[in-house]
Each structure stands twice: as C-alpha cells, then as structure tokens.
C-alpha cells in the first residue's frame, strides 16, 4: 500500500514538473524521429548512394529500443543522485518505505514506462513482423535494461559529473547490439556478456529458445549483481 502511495506521489510530481513530464514524451519523440527517418531518409540515401539501409531495420529497432529504455534509466539514475545529494534518499530509508522500497519505487517507474514504450516501438517500427510473445518479452527486457542503466549510474557515480561520465560511457554499450555486423570473432564473444547484444539477437531470431534463454539470463544476471551492489554499498 505504501509503495502505491509513493508511486502515485511520484506520478503527481512528474506531472507537475513540466520538465519531467516532457521527459516522458522524449522516448515518443525519439520513436517519431526514427520512424520518419525510416520513411523519408532511407529512400533518400538509397536514391543518392544506392546503399539500402532497409535490410538493417532489425538493428535500427534494437537501437531505438535500447536508446529509449536507456534514456529512462539515465533519468532515473540522475533523479536518484539528486535525491542522494539532497538527503531525500536517506530520509526515505528511515520511513516505512525503507531502502528496498525506495529502490523498487524508483526503478519500477522507469521500468513500467519502458514496457509501454518498447511495445509501442516494436509495433510502430516493424509492424506485423515480430510475434506478440516476442514483443512482450522484449518489453520485459527493456524494463530490465532501464533498471540496469539507472542502477549503474546511481551506484557508479559519486556526483553529477561522474554520473554524466557514466552516462556517456554507457552509450558505448550500444555498439554490442551491432557486434555481428563486424567480422571480429573476439568482439562477438565479448558481446555475449552484454544485454544489448541479446536484444538484437532476439529481434533477429525471436523463435530461438536458446537466444530467449540467454537474453533473459544476461539481463537478470546484470540486474542481480547491481542490486546486490546497491545493498552492500552504504548510502
């Protein structure tokens, strides 16, 4: 019940703060921009250079999914850093909500939004190509990814500037989504350990049980390690 009250208060706070409310719209803007790019820019590039980007649409979908949930994760991470700097996180930990409640509350918000945006992204970017179950599974993994990014920024950064440095470095994780485009075996093997690689694999082979299993396992392992790290770290 207390979780629900906090969650409702969070939504109220976000709706009152125009900047935070706009942040909710930012993934939609990103999706619109990429859809327009696919509709307008790709035919233009083809006409001008003869290079067809359409066969790579699965990679584009993976990139939009990762960017949108990553964006929500970054916002959550910085929200938590701000609350730590303002001692709000400390205050929350002595309320009935507790430390775990605070963490669940923060991560759940970004994760739930990621689920909605991921489903929307799959439907808009590649309509009718992915089975419904795979779309739902991708949306769950996007929720995991948002939480992973949020936790990475929060637990890795001592201050705002380090948070920005982390956010910049985390952008580099997207390269693993394109690993199999590069003829580097060692790089592909390295990519196995990163969630971003499995998002692309899942879009490419939605029926493969092995890919589904590893995609879930890698995401869950990252989230588990980060939550344990959060617990062990004294706030």
């Amino acid at each position: 019940m207390i979780q629900l009250i906090h969650f409702r208060n969070d939504i109220k706070r976000i709706l009152r703060d125009p900047i935070m409310a706009m942040m909710l719209i930012a993934p939609l803007l990103l999706l619109t921009a990429f859809k327009l790019m696919v509709l307008l820019l790709i035919p233009f590039i083809y006409r001008q250079t003869g290079f067809d980007v359409l066969p790579y649409s699965q990679y584009i979908l993976a990139f939009v999914l990762l960017t949108s949930s990553g964006m929500l994760g970054i916002v959550t991470g910085f929200m938590m850093i701000d609350e730590r700097d303002g001692n709000i996180a400390e205050l929350m930990s002595v309320t009935p909500l507790g430390r775990s409640g605070y963490l669940i509350n923060r991560l759940l918000f970004a994760s739930m939004l990621s689920v909605v945006y991921a489903i929307l992204t799959c439907v808009v970017m590649m309509p009718g190509t992915l089975p419904l179950l795979s779309i739902l599974f991708l949306s769950v993994l996007s929720a995991f990814y948002a939480a992973i990014i949020g936790l990475l920024i929060f637990s890795g950064a001592d201050d705002k500037v380090k948070g920005l440095t982390f956010a910049k470095a985390l952008n580099a994780l997207a390269i693993f989504a394109f690993a199999d485009l590069l003829p580097l075996q060692w790089f592909i093997v390295l990519s196995w350990f990163f969630p971003t690689y499995w998002i692309t694999q899942l879009i490419k082979s939605p029926d493969s049980l092995l890919v589904n299993f590893f995609a879930f396992a890698v995401h869950a392992a990252w989230l588990y390690v980060l939550i344990i790290r959060y617990w062990r770290k004294k706030s």
């Binding site: 900047i19 935070m20 706009m22 942040m23 930012a26 970054i74 916002v75 910085f78 929200m79 850093i81 701000d82 705002k160 948070g163 920005l164």
Partner: peptide, 10 residues
C-alpha cells in the same frame, strides 16, 4: 538538476 539540463539541451 542534471535532468532539467539534459532536457533543456534538446
């Protein structure tokens, strides 16, 4: 906040 800054840069 950094979130405000990032959004204002858009």
């Amino acid at each position: 906040t950094v979130n405000q800054y990032m959004l204002k840069t858009i």
